[in-house]
Nucleic acid binder design. Structure first.
Length: 955
RNA sequence: GGACGUUUAGCUCAGUUGGUUAGAGCAUCUGCCUUACAAGCAGGGGGUCGCAGGUCCGAGUCCUGUAACGUCCACCA
């Protein structure tokens, strides 16, 4: 492939990926003699689109996968998508309403589900297309969907087995009810938001003329939810509370309703809080529910499924059995009202009856449904539960004893604290989109659970299944995703993939779904998957938890803030108008659109430039330090795009300058010191990259690659090779050795960097390998062997020699710049006081030094030897001097040297003080003391030189 | 209320088991269109490491306290 002068990733990235996919390069080798390495992709929402978090996590997964594949491991990246019950159903419902003005009920369940499948057909490809653009090397042939037949079978299998083992049960319990979505949701889907509300103080009159110790004829009750008064079945006071001891066991008359309710003694009532009297509404408050159970109180459900007041309260005993004749009457005035409307009316009525003592402002954390967006309501309903407390035991132990490790470690605490008091998991949802619960009921309401009707007949000895109706509910989405690592590998069948790839190696995910997904996956997997000795198998050995990607101001990216960055826009670029449109379309709060447009236009006046996939991936890796959140920085992306350009152009240089080389003519003895230097440095870089990958430190991987490629390979090595190519008197064999080294290192670096930057490295690798004549037909860098540090000879002598050259060259450049001399003209340099070895090295490397420092002549002088006026710089043990020859005002040079003198004197004083300290010399390790001594000696030598030079200049 | 995280250059961040004079990129300043690259090259300036104590010969690093910001969990009648 020809390489353009300017790096244009869009011109080749897409094509390379298509070729890889066409050739099925992403499939595992299935070579059982090789170690297995596998990652299960956290399944994104099938109808979703790729956001920065996905791009981040997938980049990291792809790095790991590509690295292990190149290491020769039998590598599987299992991919797929999630049906995302509520989210998807909501999207399709909204679309239905917008386009046809219909609700899902208008279509009926079957038709509605058909529409969702259709929607999935149409828009389900977005995210997988985007993953391809990102370069994700997932095995597309094994793509799964949580609702496809195989996974659905796994879901039924798990449900039935857990039910038969008593680990799934059905019961009427208080659940978090989302009145907007009309479904139960789990604790985790409830978001507590601080809101400004009120506290109402309501008088509950005592029945039968009784009075409190203080002589009051009522109890004062404080509440933030006055409307739930309709469901009150008691008022609780603390048993030790002297104020109310005398009325315990007596009755109150429930305001507005007139029902007699008892005063009960319960520790739940805190003497210090509120008025000391708590109204008890067992059917609409989690604490009250517990109080109700302790005291055998009736539970009165007063709300409908959309949170309106019922015509009459539904009454249940503490076990949830209906109480037909009980008194659950609701005053006519409130029937059918919305809960908040009812509240206003009731407060008015209480006020009118003189039962409202006062209202205070009160800040409270109000529970909201994270999807529905309205306050949730605790409601008594029949739901299915998983006994998480039982399944959680193994799952907790696995993290405790290190079978599962969190990276970074601090997430272990988060996991443990949640697992410690695990609540049973409500898994039924009153939705249509999802896995239908495999339970049936007969006319009497008896429950039958089986994988299908055929099995049900046999299991329950039924002649016919006629008259049975299936439970209408579906399972929580996280129920099926909890099985992800093994259901995607073919479970419950005993497949080759399960045996090879389970447990998976690592899970890469965000901290936000540790509870939703990670913990439940561990529970389910350890219950169902056993190793050959019957011990529970973990789903993965390591959980790598990534931080969140925020905008440049540290704000969370969100549609409503209009600060979302689409990774695809950073790859391919986007003009400003489409970007504005994208950010302001389909907004929940359209009034914010103008502000968002203004800010977007200000931030991206010219839109977003194309940066390419490799630059994006490199940036994501570079920012991925230790699981902390990332404040996205476009400048950083630009910098790494420039880095790609640098790498690209360096490769062009190499290919251009190695035309016609004969790789076979290369011989090790002909390697120059520069060649040996870069080979040695490469070895170190490889070692460092591998260590960093093992430690999940992708920032270090990126830094190591950046520094090696830019600072060492480009800035020094390539510049040094120019000398070899241009200098007269260099043998053809030596030129050939250098050309070979240039190519060989480039080829290896392409392999080294491939996991992070898959596309540019493919182009470069192909070019370098072709030139080296090692390229086989149809070969790709992604299947080439990962470079090994031991294949590249360490040569400390060469590194030291090049370091000598670098010091000298940099010193001359410094002097030149500090003296304000133009960089181009050649100068004469004098080295004074160098030891013989340094002089020899200098002579050997003269061509390099001459060329890089732009010095046409180097002379040596003895220490203390008088020279004409010079600019000087102490370096190591010697001194570099450039004759002034009227080029510079000696006064400037005196100023410069005086500053240097001060600095040296400061250092000397500090080091002397340290060495004079008896405690230091007696306690510090020998090598530190030695270091300080030689530092002191060096500084003193240098100071002497500076002083002598100042004297020579007449200061 | 409980737990955790962060605080280092103008900005975004590194800084391994404590060890000389704390690093990088971006930004900034100076000089260069040197035939791989101006998306570049060479060089410079810029930090009392949130604050206060303590341990130690030695603290950005360890300990205690404290502040600000952030996150999670719990509670709030």
């Amino acid at each position: 492939m020809d390489m353009d002068k300017v790096y244009r990733p869009e011109s080749f990235e897409g094509g390379i990926y298509e070729q890889w996919e066409r050739d099925h390069r992403f499939a595992p080798s299935y070579d059982a003699t090789r170690p297995a390495y596998s990652i299960a992709l956290p399944p994104p929402n099938v109808t979703g689109s790729l956001h920065m978090g996905h791009a981040f996590q997938q980049t990291i997964m792809d790095c790991l996968i590509r690295y292990h594949r190149m290491k020769g491991d039998n590598t599987l990246w299992q991919c797929g998508t999630d049906h995302a019950g509520i989210a998807t159903q909501m999207v399709v419902e909204r679309k239905l309403m917008k386009e046809e003005g219909k609700r899902r009920q208008d279509l009926g369940r079957e038709e509605f589900i058909r529409r969702i499948w259709k929607w999935r057909e149409e828009s389900g490809g977005t995210i997988t297309r985007q993953m391809r653009r990102l370069g994700a090397s997932v095995d597309w042939d094994r793509e799964r969907f949580t609702m496809d037949e195989g996974l659905s079978r796994a879901v039924r299998e798990v449900f039935v087995r857990l039910y038969d083992e008593g680990l799934i049960y059905r019961g009427k319990r208080l659940v978090n009810w989302d009145p907007a979505l009309k479904t139960a949701i789990s604790d985790l889907e409830v978001i507590n938001r601080d809101t400004q509300g009120h506290m109402w103080y309501i008088r509950y009159p005592l029945a039968d003329g009784i009075k409190t110790a203080a002589g009051a004829d009522h109890l004062l009750v404080a509440t933030t939810r006055p409307e739930t008064l309709l469901g009150d079945t008691a008022v609780a006071v603390n048993p030790a509370d002297e104020r109310f001891k005398s009325v315990i066991g007596k009755d109150l008359l429930l305001p507005l309703v007139g029902r007699r309710i008892p005063i009960v003694a319960d520790e739940h009532a805190d003497m210090e809080t509120g008025t000391g009297c708590v109204k008890i509404t067992p059917a609409h408050d989690f604490n009250d529910y517990q109080v109700g159970r302790r005291h055998g109180l009736m539970m009165v459900s007063i709300l409908t499924e959309d949170a309106h007041i019922r015509e009459a309260g539904e009454c249940f005993d503490t076990n949830g059995q209906p109480l037909g004749e009980a008194d659950g009457r609701i005053p006519e005035a409130y029937r059918g009202l919305d809960r908040f409307e009812a509240r206003d009316r009731m407060v008015e009525d209480l006020k009118a009856q003189g039962l409202l003592e006062r209202i205070e402002d009160h800040e409270l954390a109000q529970p909201f449904g994270d999807r529905g967006g309205v306050p949730i309501e605790p409601m008594l309903t029949d739901q299915w539960y998983v006994r998480a407390s039982v399944l959680g035991k193994e799952a907790t132990a696995a993290v405790d004893d290190g079978r599962i490790r969190f990276v970074p470690q601090q997430y272990t605490n988060m996991y443990n604290s949640w697992m410690r008091d695990l609540q049973d998991w409500c898994i039924s949802r009153q939705l249509w989109w999802g896995h239908r619960i495999p339970a049936w009921y007969d006319q009497e309401g008896k429950v039958y659970v089986a994988r299908d009707l055929e099995e049900l007949k046999v299991k329950y000895h039924l002649g016919s299944t006629e008259g049975l109706t299936q439970d209408p509910d579906v399972l929580d989405t996280w129920f099926s995703s909890a099985l992800w690592t093994f259901s995607t590998l073919g479970w419950p069948d005993d497949t080759r993939e399960l045996r090879m790839f389970h447990p998976t190696s690592v899970l890469v995910t965000g901290f936000d779904i540790i509870f939703f997904w990670v913990a439940r996956m561990i529970m389910m997997t350890m219950h169902f998957m056993k190793d050959s000795e019957g011990r529970p198998q973990v789903p993965f050995h390591t959980v790598y938890v990534t931080g969140l990607i925020r905008d440049e101001e540290g704000q969370k990216m969100s549609k409503s803030k209009g600060n979302v960055l689409d990774p695809l826009d950073m790859i391919d670029g986007i003009a400003i108008d489409p970007l504005v449109q994208k950010r302001t379309a389909n907004m929940m709060q359209p009034q914010k659109a103008q502000q968002i447009e203004r800010r977007t236009r200000k931030q991206f006046p010219g839109g977003i430039a194309a940066h390419g996939t490799d630059a994006l991936r490199f940036t994501l890796c570079a920012l991925a330090s230790n699981g902390r959140d990332i404040n996205w920085d476009m400048k950083r992306l630009e910098g790494y795009r420039n880095f790609c350009n640098k790498f690209w152009n360096a490769s062009r240089f190499v290919l251009k300058n190695t035309e016609g080389i004969d790789p076979a003519a290369f011989a090790a003895p002909d390697l120059s010191v520069a060649d040996r230097f870069i080979i040695s440095r490469l070895s170190r870089a490889i070692e460092r990259v591998e260590e960093s990958i093992a430690a999940y430190r992708f920032d270090q991987v990126a830094t190591t690659l950046y520094e090696f490629i830019w600072n060492e390979y480009c800035d020094w090595y390539i510049e040094l090779t120019k000398v070899t190519f241009q200098e007269e008197g260099v043998s053809a064999a030596q030129r050939s050795a250098t050309a070979h080294t240039l190519l060989a290192v480039l080829e290896a670096v392409a392999r080294l960097a491939h996991p992070v930057m898959p596309f540019i490295t493919e182009v470069i690798w192909q070019g370098a390998a072709a030139r080296l004549c090692t390229l086989k037909d149809g070969a790709t860098v992604m299947e080439a062997a990962y470079p090994s540090a031991s294949e590249w000879a360490r040569d400390e002598a060469a590194e030291e020699t090049v370091s000598f050259i670098q010091d000298l060259v940099v010193s001359v450049r410094n002097l030149r710049a500090e003296m304000g001399l133009p960089p181009a003209p050649f100068l004469k340099a004098i080295i004074r006081g160098a030891c013989q070895r340094d002089e020899e090295t200098c002579c050997e490397c003269l061509p390099f030094i001459r060329c890089l420092a732009r010095i046409d002549q180097v002379a040596f002088a003895k220490s203390g030897e008088q020279l004409p006026p010079c600019a000087s710089k102490p370096l190591r043990e010697y001194e570099v001097l450039l004759p002034l020859e009227g080029l510079v005002d000696p006064q400037d040079e005196i100023k410069r040297l005086s500053a240097l003198r001060e600095k040296l004197e400061r250092n000397i004083k500090g080091t002397e003080a340290r060495l004079a300290n008896e405690a230091f010399t007696s306690k510090a390790p020998q090598e530190i003391i030695e270091g300080a001594r030689s530092q002191l000696a060096l500084n003193r030598t240098q100071l002497d030189k500076v002083l002598a030079q100042l004297k020579a200049l007449g200061a």
